[in-house]
Amino acid sequence: MAPILEIKNIETYYDLIYAIRGASLIVEQGSITAILGNNGAGKSTILKTVMGLIEDQPDKGSIEFLGERIDGLDTEKIVRKGLIYVPEGREVFNELTVDENLLMGAYTRNDRKGMAQDFERVYAYFPVLAQRKKQWAGTLSGGEQQMLAIGRALMGRPKLLLLDEPSLGLSPILVQEIFKIISAIKEEGVTIVLVEQNAKKALAISDFALILENGRFVMAGPSAKLALDKDVQEFYMGARSEESAKGYQRWKRKKRWR
């Protein structure tokens, strides 16, 4: 099957900052692809570049969605093709109710029947939200807002869902729950790209993973394989190698990657 998303060698500038320094990525249909990396590695920037949120970017390279070039298009048009992004930090509409937020998620659609079904589906995924239907989104807790942000994205019937740090700032139990739901969404046939700092959890649910550092992918492979890799364990999952010469080794290996 043809890949759903193909990024070829993109380079992105954030004003004067050279943020993405040539990154390529193929997302297979029906998979979860995780992008891991430290703070400031450029994970979110990749997603924002794909969504056309950074003006006049990517500077170089191309992005294809279902075989069609989408780089340089307006965000609105990209969304209408079925590529939906859940931004970091939720970004719900604070002064709209939960119901209205979900309705806005379905803004591009006109099929009343399908929308009614999707409302039910979202409320089935997130029963908490059903209890808060008429409440302003700004009054929800952080976890509820994250659920709402994901639910809102689902209302647009995404073909490809981009999730930016869905576990950010949530309690461990909620993180567990959110990840469970992400797997369930995948089972329904939605392809997912997941950007995460929580490498352990992300590797556990994804099929394929890439590691980003300083705007370049430095490692890629099936998630199960990456999870066993010594470097990945040490640098991203917090495992420790032996005490002796640790500092030196760490420095040397990191250096090699760049």
């Binding site: 949120l53 609105e76 969304v79 992004y85 970004e91 719900v92 604070n94 309705l103 806005m104 803004y107």
Partner: peptide, 23 residues
């Protein structure tokens, strides 16, 4: 729906664009 989209745009223009609203 258009009125609601106006409110959404007021509250969060970036998120509104991400909903496919032509801001």
């Amino acid at each position: 729906r258009f009125g609601m989209a106006m409110k959404a745009t007021q509250q969060n223009p970036v998120a509104a664009r991400l909903m496919g609203i032509r801001v």
